[in-house]
Amino acid sequence: MTTMTTLTHSPVSDHDIHGSAARDVADAASTADLERLLGEALRFAPAYEEAMSNHLPMALHAAWELGASPQRLQALVEHEAVKLDAAPAAATVLPAAMAEPQGWLAWRGQQAAYPLLLGYFQRALAGAPADEVLRAHLPALLPGLHSFAFHGLIRCAHADESHRAGASTAELAAALATWAAWFELLPPGQAVDAAERLPLPAWGEQLRLQTAGWRCELGMISWRMQAASQTALYAGLAERLAPAPTLAQRRDELISFALDAYLHSRNFTLLHLITGLRALRVLQGLLGDDLDQRSAQALLARAAVSGWMAGRVQWQAAPTLPDPDRLAWPSLHAAALAQHDEHAIKLVHACWQEDGLRPDPRWRQAAALVLG
């Protein structure tokens, strides 16, 4: 593990949750640097090697919030560029049907339609404030919150945060188009009577025990999630979680569950559940006051079951964990920015933000583990 200086723990406050504390250093990149490098990153396609997600724009924003210098962000672009594919150009002439209310839905879920969807979202964001565009489109994207192994949701949240920090809407258009083009659904599970639904601790225990022997050898997380959703195990668990009062409360509970599971397994796929649930927090205020809270929670439970199964989680009853008293966010940030692992950068960023909202030493332990 990377050697870390022992510092007194001081979690970020709500005021600092979007990076002002971390970027209060002499060589931290400016918003203009972030905008320039996000613009460079737009020359790359959303996917490469058939089904791998392009993490560069997400990692750029996360690293920027962690206090990266302009040179560090540029190095991240250069490191990722060698493996990424060129982006197709946005369509400049759109089908007439896209001008109709909800007309864009005819292209949702079609990866080949990414240029059309990119052109559509560029036009939408040029004609209305970003919040208005997000409120109009997020409810139709939420049923696919797990799409592209959660990367549509995650990229959209990072893009929204980048725009709120002062960047243009160019990356937000690409993020929305990515989520829309890679959109897919998970099937509902078996119907469950209210009396048979379980509180989250008991449901999580059943999820861990019942799926312990299930494996899928497909290479991509998103492929394994779809394979899991076709099983009787998924069907029996997907609807068994008793609803919480609100989606926000259920998100908080699930991310704590995912954090504990990561500490007990160090499972790579669970990182996507943590960063995906962070992203949901960022965007959930834009989902609208008329959001059906129970339906949204059902979507989240299905995504959690399929993601867990796709991860092939191997539970350690008594994991060896770093001493949280020897970990501090400044040193964890520095360790994250000293490497090119985009997953580690994003996970440290997510842990830091969540710790700022609900301080818990486990967030620093998870960050240290991923950096190991």
Results as ranks from 00 to 15, higher is better:
Asp292Met: 11
Leu73Asp: 03
Asp360Tyr: 07
Phe148Tyr: 10
Asp33Asn: 15
Leu200Cys: 04
Val77Arg: 04
Val282Arg: 15
Arg278Pro: 00
Arg251Val: 12
Leu116Asp: 10
Cys156Thr: 15
Cys156Arg: 01
Ala244Phe: 07
Tyr262Ile: 03
Ala344Trp: 03
Leu280Val: 02
Gly189Phe: 07
Trp179Asp: 13
Thr178Asn: 14
Asp341Ser: 14
Leu84Gly: 13
Ala157Gln: 03
Gly144Ile: 07
Ser69Ile: 00
Trp107Cys: 11
Val348Phe: 07
Glu171Gly: 08
Ala334Met: 06
Gln297Gly: 06
Ala194Val: 14
Leu273Thr: 14
Leu118Glu: 15
Ser306Tyr: 02
Glu205His: 12
Asn54Ser: 12
Lys83Ala: 13
Met220His: 11
Glu196Thr: 01
His55Arg: 02
Gly311Asn: 05
Trp214Ala: 10
Gln297Val: 04
Asp325Lys: 13
Glu354Pro: 07
Pro319Ile: 08
Leu300Ile: 00
Gly152Glu: 06
Ala318Phe: 11
Trp363Val: 02
Pro245Gly: 12
Trp363Ile: 05
Ala41Met: 03
Ser69Gly: 11
Ala112Glu: 12
Asp289Tyr: 10
His61Ile: 02
Leu118Phe: 13
Arg281Ile: 00
Arg108Phe: 04
Ser13Cys: 07
Leu287Gly: 00
Leu321Trp: 05
Pro361Gln: 12
Arg281Asn: 15
Ser20Leu: 11
Thr31Gly: 05
Ser30Gly: 11
Arg358Cys: 12
Ala165Gly: 09
Ala167Pro: 07
Thr169Gly: 07
Trp308Asn: 10
Gly276Ala: 08
Ser295Thr: 11
Ala212Val: 01
Ala51Asn: 09
Glu132Ala: 15
Leu247Val: 13
Glu342Arg: 15
Ala298Ser: 15
Asp290Ala: 15
Tyr114Pro: 06
Asp341Cys: 05
Ala81Val: 10
Glu80Asn: 14
Gln122Asp: 13
Gln122Val: 09
Ile154Leu: 15
Arg123Asp: 13
Leu172Glu: 08
Tyr234Pro: 04
Met225Ile: 01
Ala96Asn: 07
Ala81Gly: 08
Leu60Glu: 14
Ala99Cys: 01
Glu205Met: 05
His340Trp: 01
Gln249Asp: 15
Gly119Glu: 08
Pro139Asp: 02
Ala47Asp: 10
Thr246Asp: 10
Ala368Gly: 09
Gly166Thr: 12
Thr178Gln: 12
Pro143Tyr: 08
Leu84Ser: 13
Leu84Pro: 11
Leu209His: 15
Ala304Trp: 00
Ala227Trp: 08
Ala126Lys: 11
Leu291Gln: 11
Leu84Met: 14
Ala261Val: 09
Asp193Tyr: 00
Thr246Cys: 13
Thr211Lys: 01
Leu176Lys: 04
Ala232Lys: 14
Leu347Phe: 04
Gly204Trp: 05
Pro188Phe: 03
His146Ile: 07
Ala173Pro: 04
Leu280Cys: 08
Leu207Gly: 00
Leu270Ile: 14
Trp104Thr: 09
Ala303Glu: 09
Met225Leu: 02
Ala195Tyr: 06
Ala227Ile: 06
Arg358Leu: 10
Arg251Met: 13
Met225Phe: 01
Gln293Thr: 04
Glu253Cys: 06
Gln74Tyr: 06
Thr92Gln: 06
Leu185Gln: 08
Pro115Asn: 03
Asn54Trp: 08
Gly285Cys: 00
Ala59Trp: 05
Gln297Ser: 02
Pro245Val: 13
Cys351Ser: 01
Ala106Asp: 10
